[in-house]
């Protein structure tokens, strides 16, 4: 699986020696890699998780996968993109296994809410945006994250979540509408 986000990332963050050290199981290299990417990946996890603790669980599981599979990283793409993809997949896997009904229900049953015509004006903090995105139903949140922030295509999302491409599109549209309303509400308050 390859996405736009990966393409945008250059290979300048790749450190072959570091990657090789991690592949060799060197603890110092592993810790260095972890320190380099853990905070950024935690930001990713927070967008998928319901709370901070769940986000840390995803991060922990994701990095264990990263270190166990880093030998498969060939260095042709961005290391950060590769790591981000594993973290994202881990988040999806966690939600798939821990609450599959919730994910399915969120995607299939929620009604479409038309988006407002008004523009989004003004500034809003990242923390507020994080809180807003967390208010979305899990299904909406995942599709929105994958499409709007991670840069996945609807086709890729459909394949990941085992839904149709049109469903992905509609879910994204609904998520977007909800977010727009919540942002307006936030700004009004």
């Amino acid at each position: 699986m390859f996405n736009n986000k990966d393409q945008e990332l250059c290979n300048s963050d790749n450190d072959p020696q570091l990657v090789q050290g991690c592949a060799d199981g060197d603890l110092v290299s592993q810790k260095k890699l972890y320190e380099q990417f853990s905070k950024k990946m935690m930001g990713v996890c927070l967008r998928y998780a319901d709370n901070y603790e769940d986000a840390q669980d995803i991060l922990q599981e994701g990095f264990i996968k990263i270190f166990k599979n880093i030998h498969s990283f060939k260095g042709t793409g961005s290391l950060e993109g590769w790591i981000r993809r594993i973290i994202t997949n881990t988040a999806l896997a966690v939600y798939r296994t821990s609450n599959p009904l919730r994910l399915s229900k969120g995607i299939e049953e929620l009604e479409l809410i038309p988006a407002s015509d008004s523009n989004i004006i003004g500034s809003i903090s990242v923390k507020d945006l994080l809180n807003i995105i967390r208010k979305l139903p899990a299904g909406y949140r995942i599709v929105f994250n994958l499409y709007a922030i991670e840069g996945y295509s609807h086709k890729e999302i459909a394949a990941q979540l085992n839904i149709t491409e049109s469903t992905s599109k509609s879910q994204y549209s609904r998520a977007r509408s909800l977010l727009q309303k919540m942002i307006q509400s936030e700004e009004a308050s």
Partner: peptide, 16 residues
């Protein structure tokens, strides 16, 4: 909306 969230979370980091 996409741009807003994309730019907001592009370099978003959190303590662990």
């Amino acid at each position: 909306i996409k741009d807003l969230f994309n730019s907001a979370f592009k370099d978003f980091e959190a303590d662990v």
